[in-house]
């Protein structure tokens, strides 16, 4: 009696146990099918091109521009695949120094780049862009933020980046210069986390890069300028990593970011020149 009861229960469980992963695999498979379909013709067009794969670790604020640059780079170098991992530069620097396999590192701060260089994982980074901060507010601006001085008013919910993340360091500089004592309600793990809190309307304002405001949906997020005299300028260095298994492609990608084509994409997104 008990035996049969148990058995029935097992087989009932077995169906979803097999089905669920199978469906997940199917869904994942459908996604990658598209990729191969688009990649295949370009690969066959230049039969000589060997498949190259590089992984680029880039600051969260570079999400949109580097995704575009990656596609352009892939188009210019048939058979090459560029995979990105976007996160806080501080987190990426830590990952690289812990041995994460990667080919290129693009940081939103010289400090995190120096950490990677000092650990012996790269040499000779090049600055390719600069950026500055802006106040991002939800499109309906519920707290009526018109200037940086409004951020410390009572009841204004502000999101900032974690203090160790480049945008958090910049935010501290800006608030110090402006003489504002702001207690945020949350610290985002990277700049995009702050931007999301703003675009969802969960906070009244967030300090992000001006390029993040530019990349956001204007129906959801609008920017409030921070005057140049209190703003903080950050520079973005890029480098090919020593542990790269495809140093040639890694260097080619770095060169592409530094090229006129690369600069054009960055400038259009609102990044400043590297000086």
């Amino acid at each position: 009696m008990i035996r049969t009861g148990r058995k029935a229960r097992v087989s009932r469980l077995a169906v979803p146990l097999v089905l669920v992963p199978a469906l997940a695999l199917l869904a994942a498979g459908c996604g990658s099918d598209d990729d191969t379909a688009t990649a295949a013709p370009s690969a066959s067009a230049t039969a000589s091109a060997e498949p190259h794969k590089i992984t680029v670790l880039a600051a969260a604020s570079l999400t949109e521009t580097f995704t575009t640059l990656g596609k352009q780079f892939e188009a210019a170098h048939p058979g090459t695949t560029v995979t990105f991992s976007f996160a806080a530069s501080s987190a990426l620097a830590q990952q690289i120094n812990s041995g994460a396999p990667a080919d290129v590192f693009a940081s939103a701060s010289a400090k995190n780049m120096t950490e990677v260089v000092d650990a012996g994982n790269a040499t000779g980074p090049t600055t390719f862009a600069t950026n500055s901060l802006e106040i991002a507010v939800p499109a309906d601006n519920p707290a009526k933020i018109d200037e940086i001085g409004d951020l410390d008013e009572a009841g204004v919910k502000v999101a900032l980046c974690e203090a160790q993340v480049p945008c958090g360091v910049a935010a501290t500089t800006v608030l110090d210069k402006a003489g504002e004592k702001v207690t945020p309600v949350t610290y985002g793990a990277d700049v995009k986390a702050v931007l999301t809190s703003v675009s969802l309307g969960e906070v009244d304002a967030g300090l992000v890069y001006r390029t993040d405001v530019a990349s956001a949906d204007p129906k959801k997020v609008i920017g409030v300028e921070i005057p140049a005299d209190v703003n903080a300028k950050t520079s973005y260095p890029i480098v090919a990593l020593k542990e790269s298994k495809d140093a040639e492609t890694a260097k080619a990608f770095v060169d592409y970011v530094l090229s006129a084509d690369g600069t054009k994409v960055l400038t259009e997104a609102g990044f400043g020149p590297a000086k």
């Binding site: 999101a159 974690e162 945020p184 309600v185 949350t186 610290y187 985002g188 793990a189 809190s197």
Partner: peptide
């Protein structure tokens, strides 16, 4: 981290 955010002492 998604719903409550991240702030020392409160979340």
């Amino acid at each position: 981290i998604t719903f409550a955010g991240n702030f020392p002492k409160t979340t």
